Simulated scan of single mutants.
Amino acid sequence: MRDRTADNRTPDKSDESLLTLIGQLPAILSNLVKAEINNAKTQLAHKGKYAGIGAAFFAGAAVFLFFAVGVLVAVAILALALVMPAWLAALIVLVAFIIIAAVLVLVGLRFFKKINEDPSPIDNVKEDIKAVKGVGQYDR
Rank of each mutant, 00 (worst) to 15 (best):
I99A: 12
A51M: 02
A55G: 13
D139G: 06
G52N: 11
K41H: 11
G108M: 03
A6K: 03
K113Q: 04
A40D: 00
A101H: 01
F66V: 03
L19I: 11
L18M: 06
A51G: 01
N31I: 01
K130N: 15
I53D: 07
E117H: 04
D7V: 11
T20G: 14
A45I: 13
V95Q: 04
R140Y: 14
P121F: 07
I100W: 08
I99H: 02
G70W: 02
N116Q: 04
P26I: 08
F67T: 13
I129V: 15
L104N: 09
M1G: 14
E16P: 00
L80M: 14
V73K: 01
S120D: 12
L72A: 08
P11Q: 14
S120Q: 10
K113W: 03
E117R: 00
V33H: 02
A74S: 00
R2M: 09
A6L: 03
V93P: 00
E127D: 12
I37P: 00
P85H: 07
N124P: 05
Q137N: 14
V63D: 02
K49D: 07
V33M: 05
A68V: 09
A102E: 15
M1C: 15
L91E: 09
P85E: 02
A56G: 11
L88D: 03
G54S: 01
N116K: 11
G23M: 07
L106A: 14
K34I: 05
G136P: 04
L106K: 13
A27C: 08
A56V: 04
G136S: 12
A102F: 13
V63E: 04
G136F: 06
K130Y: 10
L65S: 03
T42K: 09
F111Y: 11
I129L: 13
L82Q: 15
L109A: 14
F58D: 09
E127I: 01
A79N: 13
F66D: 07
K133D: 12
M84L: 00
A76G: 13
L78R: 06
L72W: 03
